[in-house]
Simulated assay, not measured.
Amino acid sequence: MSVASRGPRKEPADADPESRAREICLRMLSASPRTRAQLADALHRKGIPDDVAERVLGRFTDVGLIDDEAFAQAWVRSRHTGRGLARRALAAELRRRGVAGDTIDEAVDSLDPAQEEETARALVRRKLPATRGADPAKRMRRLVGMLARKGYPPGLAYRVVKEALDEEGADLDLAPDDPFD
């Protein structure tokens, strides 16, 4: 390995800005899929003029190298399946990546509500054994909290956890003013 191949690769300062922008985008896209906003932000940080960045990003979009709709759909499938994230959490992640609101809505709406509920049930089943021995109310809080952090609505989270604890035979002596009712 030569000394020149070690470390981060630098673009020549006198390189054509459009060539630099293409190289930056291609390098980022080869590492992982990116949204148009993520690429635009990177180009801005690297000092690429806005008009050049817009031209390069437009061309990449035209040829299909940047596709926020496909990115959002794949992100929703991957993060729901892999991490068990619900619609709310998925939408927040996509917003942080600069995906447009209507694209986010379309992607999270593709998530089947029955599948989302089944994923919540699977998460609870997986976590339930680790809570055995704890006070039933504490178990309820922990499990509902876990689902809430993953973006599940409170009503769904409470219902799924209550059903799982009921199936297990846990004695849920919840107060009538329980905040989840």
Results as ranks from 00 to 15, higher is better:
His44Ile: 09
Lys46Arg: 14
Pro8Trp: 14
Pro154Ile: 13
Pro176Gly: 10
Pro136Ile: 03
Leu147Cys: 06
Tyr152Gly: 01
Ala164Tyr: 14
Val160Ile: 07
Met1Ser: 15
Glu167Leu: 04
Asp67Tyr: 06
Arg20Glu: 01
Ala120Glu: 01
Arg88Lys: 13
Thr119Met: 07
Glu118Trp: 14
Lys46Asp: 11
Arg142Asp: 12
Phe71Cys: 03
Ala170Arg: 04
Phe180Gly: 07
Gly155Pro: 06
Glu163Asp: 15
Leu94Lys: 01
Gln115Ala: 09
Val124Thr: 05
Ala107Asp: 00
Cys25Gly: 03
Leu94Ser: 00
Gly133Ile: 00
Glu93Ile: 03
Gly64Trp: 09
Ala114Met: 09
Gly7Phe: 11
Asp62Trp: 14
Lys162Glu: 12
Met140Leu: 15
Ala175Pro: 11
Ala107Val: 00
Asp177Lys: 08
Ala74His: 14
Glu116Arg: 08
Arg139Met: 07
Glu167Gly: 02
Ala92Ser: 09
Val76Ser: 08
Met140Ile: 09
Phe60Asn: 00
Gln115Ile: 02
Ala92Asn: 04
Gly151Arg: 00
Lys46Glu: 12
Asp102Met: 10
Pro33Val: 05
Gly7Met: 03
Val161Asn: 02
Leu156Gly: 07
Ala31Cys: 10
Leu29Lys: 03
Val63Glu: 07
Asp62Gln: 14
Leu29Trp: 06
Glu11Tyr: 14
Leu39Met: 03
Pro33Tyr: 12
Pro49Phe: 12
Arg97Gly: 00
Leu165Lys: 04
Gly82Tyr: 09
Trp75Phe: 15
Val52Tyr: 06
Ala157Leu: 04
Ala86Tyr: 08
Arg88Phe: 07
Arg142Glu: 14
Gly155Glu: 13
Ala40His: 10
Pro129Glu: 01
Arg55Trp: 06
Leu43Trp: 01
Val76His: 04
Gly169Ser: 04
Glu117Val: 11
Glu93Cys: 07
Arg142Phe: 11
Trp75Leu: 07
Cys25Trp: 04
Glu168Thr: 05
Asp67Gly: 05
Arg6Asn: 12
Arg45Glu: 11
Asp102Ser: 13
Asp171Met: 05
Ala74Gln: 14
Ala134Asp: 10
Glu167Asp: 06
Ala70Ser: 12
Lys10Thr: 15
Arg159Ile: 01
Arg34Lys: 11
Pro33His: 09
Gly98Met: 02
Leu65Glu: 04
Val108Gln: 04
Gly133Ser: 03
Arg132Ser: 05
Leu94Thr: 01
Gly155Met: 11
Asp16Thr: 01
Asp62Pro: 01
Glu118Gln: 14
Arg132Gln: 06
Gly7Cys: 05
Val160Asp: 03
Thr61His: 03
Arg97Asp: 00
Ala74Ser: 15
Gly169Arg: 04
Val52Phe: 04
Arg59Pro: 01
Glu106His: 14
Asp68Phe: 00
Gly133Asp: 05
Leu147His: 06
Ala148His: 10
Phe71Asn: 00
Pro136His: 09
Ala120Met: 08
His80Cys: 08
Pro49Met: 07
Lys150Met: 12
Leu172Lys: 05
Ser5Leu: 15
Gly133Leu: 03
Arg79Ile: 10
Gly145Phe: 09
Leu43Thr: 00
Tyr158Lys: 10
Ala148Pro: 03
Val76Gln: 02
Gly82Lys: 12
Asp102Gly: 12
Ala122Met: 10
Trp75Lys: 11
Arg79Tyr: 14
Arg97Met: 04
Arg36Met: 11
Asp171Cys: 05
Ala4Ser: 15
Gly82Trp: 11
Lys46Tyr: 13
Val76Trp: 07
Met146Asn: 06
Gly64Asn: 08
Gly64Asp: 08
